[in-house]
Design a protein around this nucleic acid. Structure first.
Lengths: 143, 143
DNA sequence: ATATATGTAACTACAAAAGTTTCATGATAA
DNA sequence: TTATCATGAAACTTTTGTAGTTACATATAT
């Protein structure tokens, strides 16, 4: 099933943005994640609506962070991208009259809810500035 | 994104199978889950390969459980359906040279692995015979 | 023999992200 | 004020795997 890689891609972009002081164009960002500028704008527009980034047109225009990386969690970005379910597993018609079908769906839903809650909790505990800080730090020491 | 409802559907079918003593045709099962017999066979074939059901052709043929519901967990069925990721969230190219991209992917993967482990653990704790047993019991008392 | 079922191949439909093309709009620089 | 640069947005096509469908071969019980 096709994966939604917008979260991974846009996090990558945001961490780069945090290290650059001037506006970055969607053209440059598209290079970072090997895609098309329009794809970038589409996703970044969702973050702008949620006030995590700003965009300016024209000469020296582009995208900037609206707040420090330390003030943004993975959960914030995940939520800004929309509400779609995080699971590929779907339930059958929930309006079924069949008690067995209802029971199956309740069991699956309970487990999925628990797993999703854990995931969102963890996402909420990670801010973008601490994203792999240890790895990047050790990399800088090597150069 | 399109959901994979095979787990939900096939669990529904299996619990019914546990309550019926004779072989059930894919035609009847298709009615249970409002679909086509071929769709049913396709999914049931995966369970047969994993030895959870048997099928017989011809007159009075159909599908039967190969073992009691009590000996099958949700995890067993989940595994029998294949190995695809349970998450709609995907990571970008994991062979990237970019340290930031790597760090983002590690963070996401860690969280997703933890959530998946919890989910699979729960699936392994639920056998098909106890699937909503309390609900079905209370339903029977009401009739 | 005949009716009944599965087994399987070869399609089409669908949904949502991703990719692409194109052009309007606005901002800066010269 | 004009050329250039950048976003904004519409209108597509592509992609990928489940789901749905049609058709037919094969095996089995009566």
């Amino acid at each position: 099933m096709r994966k939604d890689s917008r979260l991974s891609r846009v996090l990558h972009i945001l961490v780069h943005l945090g290290a650059i002081d001037r506006p970055v164009t969607s053209e440059k960002m598209a290079e970072m994640i090997s895609t098309n500028p329009v794809v970038v704008r589409r996703t970044m527009a969702l973050l702008r609506e949620a006030n995590y980034v700003t965009s300016t047109k024209g000469h020296h225009g582009g995208w900037k962070l609206a707040k420090p990386l330390a003030d943004i969690t993975l959960l914030d970005i995940h939520n800004a991208l929309g509400e779609g379910s995080i699971f590929t597993i779907g339930l059958t018609d929930e309006h079924s009259e069949c008690v067995i079908e209802q029971a199956v769906n309740v069991a699956l839903k309970d487990v999925m809810n628990e797993a999703e809650a854990l995931m969102l909790k963890r996402f909420g505990q990670i801010t973008l500035n601490q994203l792999g800080a240890d790895r990047i730090f050790s990399y800088l020491n090597d150069v």
